[in-house]
Amino acid sequence: MDITFVLEKFILVAIIFGISLVIAMYSTYAERKVAAFLQDRLGPDRAGPAGMFQPLADGLKMFMKEEIIPTNSNKWLFMVGPGLAMLTACIGTAVIPWGSPIVFDGRIIPLQVTDINVGILYIFGVVSLGVYGVMIGGWASNNKYSLLSAIRAASQNISYEIAMGLSIIALLLVTGTMSLKEVVEQQHGWHWNVLYQPLGFIIFIVCSFAETNRAPFDLPECETELIGGYHTEYSSMKLGFYLFAEYINMFVSSAVMAALYFGGYNYPGMDWVLVHAGTVIAPLIGAGVFFAKIFAFIFFFMWVRWTIPRFRYDQLMHLGWKMLTPLAIANIIITGIVIALIEKF
């Protein structure tokens, strides 16, 4: 291993980590602004121009607040919970291709931390680990409502993971590879997977709403029934980490959806740009397009949150098991039949 390779990866990881934290930070601001827009209000506008420094003020407030650890809680696990939530939220970005490789001075620099040949499954694994932060935190709080909420979160995540996994299988039938880099490269020139897998995409996006615990699936933090949800006992930055992890999750799942279904960094006319802008600028433009797609998805997440009311718990289970799962299985069968017919004729 040469030192430039290690340095390259280190810088890339640092940049991606920084970007995901900043995006998560400004998602909190964007969420409040979008909510204000949808409800015909102004939203935060005091801290800085148009309230731009509001996230900094909120972060400072979180850090400065008194930290309370309940007496009868399991102290070690109580602290592990938020950390685990942040960890599982952040490691998902490792396999996402942010842009086509930069060729600089004869050296190819891929804009992806690692291209493992089971990339899609890796993301799926990280998603399935995401529930531990909530479960451990909820249990360690030694509070009935926190525990109930943690258990809700666990059953919700497990139920929707099934439909999500099945929708990914249909996608894999189309792409024939699990490497995210190859999946994105295949979508070059309007071969976006959403055009081949519209039903799979709808299932996937509904499931990712459920996996990130966003409205209308935010039952784990259903205030009217569970006080605050799994983080009822949390205060100060530990609470901040839980809330922050949700926004990072939203960012990562937006990135995954943009990469799997909406062509990743591909955009119309990118070959022309590559010829005219050079091999350093063009990939960066591609990365910019990718981020624009991600922001569109993040906006969609917020739009839905402030439009649709929360599900009831039995409706949630009904949707997950009796509608999405059979639909996803039907999608696999139809995709399989169509692919077999295309290969035959």
Binding site: G125, V127, S128, L129, V131, Y132, M135, W139, I151, A154, S155, N157, I158, E161
Partner: peptide, 10 residues
């Protein structure tokens, strides 16, 4: 790790 142990914990 992601499914069976979650059920155990549950």
């Amino acid at each position: 790790m992601g499914a069976i142990m979650v059920l155990f914990l549950f």
